[in-house]
Computed example of a mutant assay.
Amino acid sequence: MVMAFIGVKTFKAIGSLFLFILATLAVWKEIKLSQKMCEESSANYLLLANGNRANAAGDTLLPRRPVRNSPVRKMHRSLNKSYINNDHLERNYERIEHANVTLFVSSPPSSGIVNLLELFYALPIIRDSVVVPLVDNKILSTGNYSAIEQYVHKAIEDAQPPALVHTHAYHVNVSASLRNKSLLMISVVRDPIQRAVSMYNYARVNSTRRDSEQIRKWRETLNINKRETYDDCVKLKRSECVSEGATTRLIRHFCGYDRRCRKKTRWTLERAKHNIETNYFVIGTREDMEIFIQVLERRLPSIFKEGSRVYNNLLDIGKVTRGDRYTKVMPSDDTIEKMKRMMALDIELYEWIIARFEDAQRNVGLKI
């Protein structure tokens, strides 16, 4: 019996030793993995600081999620914050004289892209070139980044400069091979609350001759109450107005299709800023469309020469408007205050874009 007792104690001791060894190996593996991630993140930061624009624009440089409770977690966070922060990047306001470019215009819906497109169609150099709309909502609505990326890349690849490709798709990382074809990414944005109200009303207006068949089909699929105002929508907490997707449309647009971009976080905001700084030639605002065109005239004269004159002619004949083409009921002050809180990150990005746009204006000699 004594021997049996000793045997049991020995077996337990051996088992405990075995479990201790396994636990030690697991902890060691976690520490090594976390250190490796930290080293990768450090390398990525150095690449970005050295101006490796083509690589920094891709998802492959984003550090992976660090191991929870890792002893180097704080260091990793610090490096990741430095990687995302773009304040140290020197902005480039180059002037491009040649017309051998493809313009890729990506912006959220109801941001003023229609006015910009009307100008493109009216410009002398664009009349003889191809304007390629990306309107395949079956692909865009899936959220499948691989399919969307292939779709966008093919449209850009098939375009023969000077050409224009436009879409409402979220930000897509364009490959280096396409960048070598003198691709310029531009965009136009709008005050987030004004854009949301405009989009809300646009979904409820009757179809007009300006609407494409695809837009009419889209409107037919909407499950909406046409009698409700935007105030009602917010008060009743309809997902169309107050969901995370509805209140982060701007930061999600420029953040892209990374799953982390679906969340209302500071990371999404900073990633959107990073994508703008490293990819976009210029971003203007719907509220200052005429100034936006003047900036384009000075930075890309081969395409936008006489752009301001042409745009003023379009305003005179009613081809473009400074406001929405349909009547909309503006929300109450109380609703606007609620939406300001809910759209805080979108508004912060919008104001950051305005500051960046004003910097571009000063750089080309326009008075602010």
Rank of each mutant, 00 (worst) to 15 (best):
A176T: 07
L164V: 13
I126A: 10
E220F: 00
H253W: 02
S177C: 01
Q35L: 13
L116C: 01
M37K: 06
S110F: 06
D128N: 13
S207M: 03
V295K: 00
S198L: 08
M199S: 08
R238W: 09
V130C: 04
P71F: 08
T229C: 10
S187R: 08
T24L: 14
N55P: 00
E220T: 01
C233N: 00
V329D: 09
R260Q: 03
V165N: 07
K12R: 07
T321M: 11
N137R: 10
S243G: 05
K217Q: 08
R271D: 01
K273Y: 07
L140Y: 04
T278N: 14
E94T: 13
P109E: 02
N115R: 04
V310Y: 03
L33M: 05
D346V: 09
I21N: 03
Y83A: 03
Q35C: 12
A26D: 11
F104N: 07
T335E: 02
D136S: 05
L119S: 02
A43P: 01
T268Q: 09
S207Y: 02
D346L: 06
C261D: 07
S146K: 15
M289L: 11
F254T: 06
L366N: 09
T208S: 15
Q194A: 15
L366I: 15
A57Q: 12
S182Q: 08
L184W: 05
M289N: 04
I84H: 11
V2H: 10
T327Y: 07
E348W: 04
F254W: 10
P63I: 03
I148P: 04
L89K: 07
T335F: 02
T208N: 06
K328C: 04
Q35K: 15
L366S: 10
R362P: 02
N206F: 07
N201D: 10
N223W: 00
R322C: 03
L184Y: 05
R204S: 12
K81Y: 11
S34F: 00
E118H: 09
N279F: 08
K36P: 09
N137E: 09
I303V: 15
R299V: 07
L314S: 09
F104P: 10
Y93N: 06
W352D: 09
S110C: 14
T60D: 14
T60F: 15
R95E: 02
E297Y: 02
N173H: 14
S146V: 13
G58E: 14
V135K: 09
S177G: 01
E358D: 11
V105D: 05
S308W: 05
Q150P: 00
V329K: 12
V234D: 00
S308P: 05
L89D: 03
E157M: 09
L366C: 12
P331T: 00
D128A: 12
R91L: 14
L236H: 11
L17P: 01
